[in-house]
Amino acid sequence: MAAAAAAGAGPEMVRGQVFDVGPRYTNLSYIGEGAYGMVCSAYDNVNKVRVAIKKISPFEHQTYCQRTLREIKILLRFRHENIIGINDIIRAPTIEQMKDVYIVQDLMETDLYKLLKTQHLSNDHICYFLYQILRGLKYIHSANVLHRDLKPSNLLLNTTCDLKICDFGLARVADPDHDHTGFLTEYVATRWYRAPEIMLNSKGYTKSIDIWSVGCILAEMLSNRPIFPGKHYLDQLNHILGILGSPSQEDLNCIINLKARNYLLSLPHKNKVPWNRLFPNADSKALDLLDKMLTFNPHKRIEVEQALAHPYLEQYYDPSDEPIAEAPFKFDMELDDLPKEKLKELIFEETARFQPGYRS
């Protein structure tokens, strides 16, 4: 834990890192770190609560700039109880001085990944967590956004079992017609939660990839272990087919990539493993919904509104309290091709509203 900075004593240090967030945020305490930044909790002297502050230093890398800009653009436009918001952003007053960006968010005690390492969940908890994931996802999908990296560590939890989806750095506007060349190379989302079509096709992607990830998360809540822990690309596919069985001819016809289709045709026939054999203690309604989410063919996979209306979630289902976005989200430009200098300018502009004396 960093010592509390005395008023006016300059930035606090946390594990050798400068955290320049005073005077409003003090009493910093280390939480963890990701690929390009550290997260601390801090005391907000204005709202009198502890908050989470993520320090991001992305400006050396085009990919990190892209992810940072995506996350900020999306989260500043989203407003939903099951999606983490941005409360404040701290950065230098000029673009030349801006080396880091500090993002202030609600402090959540833990995440689903940490929880599943230590606790076996009751059916009631599984049901409530799944409902909140789908409630947040309904809003995301209504904005025409794909999260693309749903996994237990991106689901934040607090002691009252509130759940918030975080990390929109890989999110995209849904565009089933656009052929994202190089899709697989830039697709760094965790393999275990990846839909089979991501490994088999490169053309376009749809909201059904997020539903697949939610199915993987439900299976993990039922058993405290990942359902498809593939060691590499082909191993991942083999794990999936080992449980779902061989795809039907109709399902194979959806695979545009001939090499991928021929690979699947070359494999020995596998039978589907019954879900109640894998999860003998699970609620039968939970397994019915799991089956509809972990469907090989993305066109037959359940959609988020149908999933919310499934009998497993009937005690929570309330369409009048499951809000959607006001308007579909649009990125003005494809960020993939922009140089990091341009992305830095866009991050600077996007964060201006939090600067003292800002006038829109």
Rank of each mutant, 00 (worst) to 15 (best):
A3S: 14
A4C: 00
A6H: 05
A9S: 13
A9I: 03
F19P: 13
D20E: 15
G22V: 15
P23F: 00
R24K: 07
Y25E: 05
G32M: 03
E33R: 02
G37D: 08
M38P: 12
V39Q: 08
V39G: 01
V39R: 03
N45H: 05
N45V: 07
R50Y: 06
I56G: 12
E60T: 00
L69C: 05
L69T: 03
I74D: 08
L76E: 01
R77Q: 13
E81K: 14
G85C: 15
A92Q: 00
P93D: 04
I95G: 04
E96L: 02
Q97M: 03
D100W: 00
E109P: 02
T110L: 12
L112V: 04
Y113K: 10
L116W: 04
F129R: 05
F129W: 06
L130W: 01
I133D: 07
K138C: 08
A143D: 14
V145P: 03
H147I: 04
L156N: 05
T159Y: 12
K164E: 10
K164N: 15
I165G: 08
F168I: 15
L170S: 02
L170N: 06
A171V: 07
A171W: 04
A174W: 03
P176A: 09
D177N: 14
H178V: 12
D179K: 07
H180K: 08
G182Q: 10
T185L: 08
E186T: 06
R191Q: 15
R191W: 02
R194T: 09
A195E: 12
P196Y: 06
P196K: 13
E197M: 07
E197D: 15
Y205C: 10
D210R: 09
W212N: 09
S213W: 03
V214G: 12
G215A: 13
I217H: 12
L222E: 10
N224I: 15
R225N: 01
P229W: 04
P229Q: 03
G230Q: 00
K231V: 01
Q236S: 09
G242V: 11
S248H: 01
Q249V: 08
C254Q: 07
L258I: 08
A260N: 01
N262D: 07
S266A: 03
N271H: 12
N271D: 05
N276I: 15
F279I: 15
F279G: 01
K285W: 07
L287T: 07
T295I: 03
N297Q: 11
K300H: 10
L308T: 02
P311D: 04
Y317C: 13
Y317V: 00
D318W: 01
S320P: 05
P323F: 00
E326I: 00
F331D: 06
F331P: 00
E334W: 00
D336A: 11
D336Q: 05
D337R: 04
L338P: 05
L343T: 07
K344G: 12
E345C: 02
L346V: 09
E349C: 02
E350Y: 00
F354H: 13
Q355F: 00
R359C: 01
S360V: 12
